[in-house]
Design a protein around this nucleic acid. Structure first.
Lengths: 145, 145
DNA sequence: TGGAAATAGTTTGAAAGTCGAATTATTTTT
DNA sequence: AAAAATAATTCGACTTTCAAACTATTTCCA
């Protein structure tokens, strides 16, 4: 078994596991009814005030039709507020409710904790190599887009 | 900028893009009609002979009902062959056709290219460190599941 | 300035993927 | 031999997604 194969298998396993763990972590306690998809939309809306549908859809790389349906569900679950703009009445502005903001922080905390735990496992040279690897990986994907 | 933030941002970017890019890389030329899901099933079946439905479903973390539908489609597209076991006639064995094996290799090439890009950037000691690091992380996440 | 074009979002219809429960066929246990 | 267990498929329901049609509104320009 050469090192390339070993690296490939390790990366595949890591991505699979991290996704799984992250999704499971979302659906705890008061956020039981939230899907991973819901969380992505909540992250894309963010904490900095209202955003229009097109902007959020673009950030998520989905059509506005798709986003409309996701927002319907989030409004029903009371994570998101939807308001028609007064300045341009074609525009719909979405923002997080208090409950939505709490969910945002809940997820961010999970994320921060996860990174902390990863970094805690590594000594300084390992951190350097890992950072270099992830940077290369990010560039590889960027070049493929 | 501390390393935690750098790692966090890299992970976020990677997770956002990886599925989309991998799917795009799959759907080229003769594999235009293949979905990312098809590819996952093909990977799970693999090149080492026939597997039964339950085993593949378990590897993919889906119900056998879900897998039945996926296999129906792959058989229709001629990537997968489905045979009822002679030893135990309840069991259905699935394996890759020549076309399925070609698709498997096509996808593997994408992965190999990715790993080559990473390894190219590293000298020998760094490679050793990376392998050890990823092993540590894989074990860490496995323990979290 | 009034009609055409552009823009923002929603609705609709179709396809894919998923699950849990019911069902069928077969094997194992008692 | 009958009951229980196992393997896979089918069924019905639901979610996510897109593209295209549609509605409402604003901007452009002749």
């Amino acid at each position: 078994m050469n090192i390339n194969n070993a690296l490939n298998e390790l990366l595949v396993v890591l991505f699979k596991d991290i996704n799984e763990i992250e999704e499971k972590a979302i659906r705890t306690g008061q956020y039981k009814n939230m899907t991973a998809n819901d969380m992505h939309v909540i992250e894309a809306i963010g904490l900095n005030g209202a955003k229009n549908m097109s902007a959020v859809a673009k950030a998520l790389n989905v059509t506005t039709g798709t986003l409309t349906i996701a927002i319907n569900s989030l409004v029903k679950k009371n994570y998101v507020e939807r308001v028609r703009s007064e300045e341009d009445r074609r525009v719909v502005l979405v923002s997080l409710t208090p409950k939505g903001r709490k969910a945002f922080h809940h997820h961010k905390k999970f994320h921060d904790d996860m990174i902390d735990q990863i970094v805690k496992q590594l000594d300084e040279p390992e951190k350097q190599v890992l950072e270099k690897t992830l940077t290369t990986l990010a560039e590889f994907f960027k070049s493929k887009k």
